[in-house]
Write a protein that binds this DNA or RNA. Sequence first.
RNA 1: GCCCUGAUAGCUCAAACGGAUAGAGCAGAUCCGUCCUAAGGAUAAGGUUAGAGGUUCAACUCCUCUUCAGGGCACCA
Length: 554
Amino acid sequence: MNVIKQHILCSLNNIVAKYLQTVSVASNSNFIVQTPPKNIDADFALNVAMLISKKTKKPPRIVAQELANIIIKEIPELVEKVETSSAGFINLCINNEVLYKELKSILEEKDKYGSLSKNNKKRIIIEFVSANPTGPLHVGHGRGAAIGDSLARILKYLGYSVTKEYYLNDVGNQMFLLAKSTEIRYRQLKGEKIDLPADHYQGSYIIDIAKRLLSEGRSINQIDFKHESVSEILKAIKYDLEKFNIEFDNWFFESTLTNTIDKNGKTEIAKISEFFLKKGFAYIKDDILWLASTKFGDDKDRALRRSDGRYTYFASDIAYHMNKFKRGFTKLINLWGADHHGYVARIKACVQMLGFKKETLHIILYQLVSLLRNDSSVSMSTRTGEFITLRKVIDEVGKDVCRFFFLLRSPDSQLKFDLELAKKQSNENPIFYVQYVNARCNSILKKSTDRNDIMIDTKNIDFSLLNTKEERNLIKQLIAFCDTLVISEKTMSPHHLTTYLIKLADVYHKFYEKCRVLANDSNLASARLKLIESVMIIIKNCLGLLGISTIDTM
RNA sequence: GCCCUGAUAGCUCAAACGGAUAGAGCAGAUCCGUCCUAAGGAUAAGGUUAGAGGUUCAACUCCUCUUCAGGGCACCA
């Protein structure tokens, strides 16, 4: 949260507590500091009077007025003017000096502004993408990738220790199918007359792998089709993610759970199953080991071990989550596509069975992406292998535009991604509206070097010259960056930052129109250049958290 | 049938914790060019927040029901 708001909240808490004592009422209320609507000429608004009026047995208007009188007396260094509305809102005008002081902080702290020092209390692991290594990443994965990566950046910026992890399902039936698919393609290339069954992987990338294997001239029984296919596909996935500016701290292979055994010859999965059985969270029926997940809110009980003795994927997923806890993480964040929502209840049930609070696991579901080209939808069918890969989209519209589009909307809403719109380098494309700010700033900065009367040292700058409405709004918007970070964390969504940037651009362009930066007056020009500098700092920080680079010229 | 998400301006979408007259962008209208990038700005116009109830001083926000849309309901992963 920005320091000014924090300061107000803190002072107000004291003032309200004292006030309630004078009217002999104990306890406190959770009031908020918010931005008043446009038509009201104030910087911050308080709803506290409405909340405590019942306790004080006075109408909100009166309470507001009484509090307002105290505020102006108690914190004049912060608040310049207080007004109350008939409904009971208290509207505060902030002393300009406070704003200038904050502006100086931006200039001093630069890429640290708004960040918090490292706090090791919460160790977060954020798991995202985790697409099966059976084919290339598609646009849907791209959305999860962008959201997960940005969120990780934001949380890191806010001082948390964050680990980004990709969970790889490299065992099971799908791996068998993948290996088989490559093998069949290989045999086909060799001239054998066999068909690829419909439930096998149909994508052309399989043929490419088979072609490579063939060109290497090894005989068929020398080839480990599974290993060859997975490693090749994995290489492609890593390449795509790198292109998308995403780097994982850790790649976790499911096989480490199924293959690692202790001295008694037991896997982690088996041990957890036994633990559940002992605890009464699991039971055997018809030779199947069932998890009684209904005990913790799931719709039905789930199979952990099949009648043939093999464990299910779900069982290893439980072991995987346990493994995260064992590694010392205290907060687990998972990003899942909305098609996995049915999974939420059962995995949360497991977390509780393992002895952790269900809140320690936070699952973010993001809705699906539909790709458009000129308003008509681009078909995406995974079965036939004809889907739009993430790489194609990145190549077509660029990494930055792609990330911005994915981060423009809340994960809850379905995303319509229009390829043609994203490609347009015009005002129709919101990212350029934002990038244009930086370009304009940059251009002014360059031009300013022609002048020798500009003061560089912040100490010599007279910030009080920044006193127009436009300049004040711009400074306020810059400071609001801190609030946006807090909201993004609270709601676990980076899209607030894109919205913030668009608003910042709006305020900036208005300022640009009204205030000539390189004014004749040296003092004014120097002060405004400092303002420009801080705009560039904030934009860079903000875009950085979204994983997007700034553009200096358009 | 059950479960999860949505439904906000013509279109794409915002609006953390319930707060004042629900905001942007695009499209459409009218205007702004000696001067830091017009990929900009200004002025209007555009809304019964899907519908109906309820809780509250206050509801896009919380609760109930209905309608519509997307998705999910395996001894798959």
